[in-house]
Design a binder for these strands. Structure first.
Length: 397
RNA sequence: GGGCAGGUGGCCGAGCGGUCAAAGGCAUGGGACUGUAAAUCCCACGGGCGAGAGCCCUUCAGUGGUUCAAAUCCACUCCUGCCCA
């Protein structure tokens, strides 16, 4: 593949590259670039937002470059302050290990683990002597650090900034120095860290890495970036139906973006869908099928589609309804059951007050009938619906 | 080290002795409308008891105190920010 073709593929759907000329120059000099991707093992599941970056990483693997995955077990102790207005809680070594256990198999769904060199940055960062840390920190100034948006904002609004947080970009930079990275991948929110890294690499007499920054995918709320803590994420390990449903619930104006960032479909196809279909829902169907196919299979995607139409469009019962058990004492000799007690006892709702609220607001249905009073006859099957689409089946122990 | 200002529900933020389970906003949940959404409107949003008006319990950083009564006053402790050194 020519350099031009590589550049074209690499830069597709990126948000910013610092900078393209350097990348071209590197490609012309080396056939194998060292491509670094740092991940913070603070989460234990990968969502579509991070998948955007991983997919680009996979591209470099396909192009035959050396791909290095840096598991930031050391830097996770600090917590990346990017985009945060609060100090992150420090993770313990144990929590990090737990997270990694579930993390790696998920990574394998997107990237080729065989071709991936996996390293832990504690390998070198933990061995840094205080003298070396001083040397590292002497290369950057407080004013430079405070230029960073998140720090600036926090500083201005009298929010605390712990000293260790200032170290984060420096340690991340040191990773690249240690690994002699040619290219680093990340979200656009990493821009500051990348700039620091390039700067530090030069201070260590290295050629600065090329920073390839990908867009930040919005979560299903359509506003905030996709993140687990905001609860607006779509995990790549979620079951097909959940995934399908979540994709269907994204904002209409995100459809195109999801197509571009989460699927492999060429631009022309995407444009075509918008021409063919009037109802955005139908384009979302294609999108959802496409994404579910990537992480599960085409067959499962089609099944998820059928199930979705069944439940949400035709308002039929889902094919699987979770069972919850209650004690037989809750049912009296007349076969009466207090639905509030039952929902609470079965563990479906957190408190009886919540059950009462839902009942008085008409949010509880028994076998399709809206309940208006709390005493009901127990019958089989006993299928409870809460809200529009949450189904539960109650059985007697 | 000295001076000052703060720490309130999932988050932000009012309250500053009784009328406080604590205004308002955001988030969330339910209902209406829909395309599964979004937007909009209505309602709810610590827990327990009660059909219900209502009653009770646990909350306003922590501990101890003053008071008939404390988120509100006092003391100490912890945490945060600002100014001076």
């Amino acid at each position: 593949m020519t350099i031009k073709e590589q550049l074209e593929k690499i830069s597709r759907n990126t948000q910013e590259i610092i900078n393209l000329e350097e990348l071209e120059s590197k490609l012309s000099r080396k056939s194998k670039l060292k491509v670094k991707l740092g991940i913070d093992p603070t989460a234990n599941s990968i969502h579509l937002g991070f998948a955007v970056v991983l997919r680009k990483f996979k591209l470099f693997q396909d192009l035959g470059h050396e791909t290095i995955l840096v598991l930031g077990d050391f830097t996770a102790l600090i917590g990346d302050p990017s985009g945060k207005n609060k100090t992150r809680p420090m993770l313990t070594q144990k929590e990090i290990e737990e997270n990694l256990k579930t993390y790696l198999p998920q990574l394998g769904k997107i990237i080729d683990l065989q071709k991936t060199k996996i390293v832990y940055n504690s390998q070198w960062l933990s061995n840094l002597k205080p003298e070396e840390i001083i040397k590292l920190t002497s290369r950057y100034t407080l004013a430079q650090m405070l230029e960073r948006e998140d720090f600036k904002n926090r500083y201005k609004s009298n929010e605390p900034i712990s000293l260790h947080e200032l170290m984060y970009p420096l340690f991340q930079a040191y990773d690249s120095v240690y690994l002699q990275a040619d290219v680093e991948l990340g979200g656009i929110d990493q821009k500051f860290n990348f700039i620091v890294t390039r700067y530090i690499q030069e201070k260590y007499n290295q050629e600065p890495e090329v920073a390839i920054m990908l867009p930040i995918l919005e979560g299903i709320d359509g506003v905030n970036k996709m993140s687990k803590s905001l609860g607006n994420y779509i995990g790549i390990d979620e079951d097909p139906l959940t995934m399908f449903t979540k994709i269907m619930s994204i904002n209409d104006n995100l459809i195109k973006r999801y197509f571009q960032l989460c699927t492999n479909l060429p631009e022309e196809n995407i444009e075509k869908f918008f021409k063919i279909y009037e109802n955005p829902r139908d384009i979302k169907y294609i999108l959802a099928k496409e994404i579910v196919s990537i992480y599960h299979s085409e067959e499962k995607a089609n099944k998820a589609y059928e199930e979705f139409v069944n439940i949400y469009s035709q308002k039929n019962l889902p094919s699987h309804i979770p069972f919850f058990k209650i004690n037989s004492e809750l049912i009296d000799s007349q076969n009466n059951l207090n639905i509030i007690e039952a929902l609470y006892a079965a563990g479906i709702l957190e408190s009886k007050a919540e059950a009462k609220r839902l009942l008085s607001q008409g949010g509880i249905y028994l076998n399709g009938q809206k309940l208006t009073q709390k005493i009901v006859k127990f019958q089989k099957p006993f299928i409870i619906r809460i809200g529009k689409f949450n189904y539960y089946q109650i059985e007697v122990k």
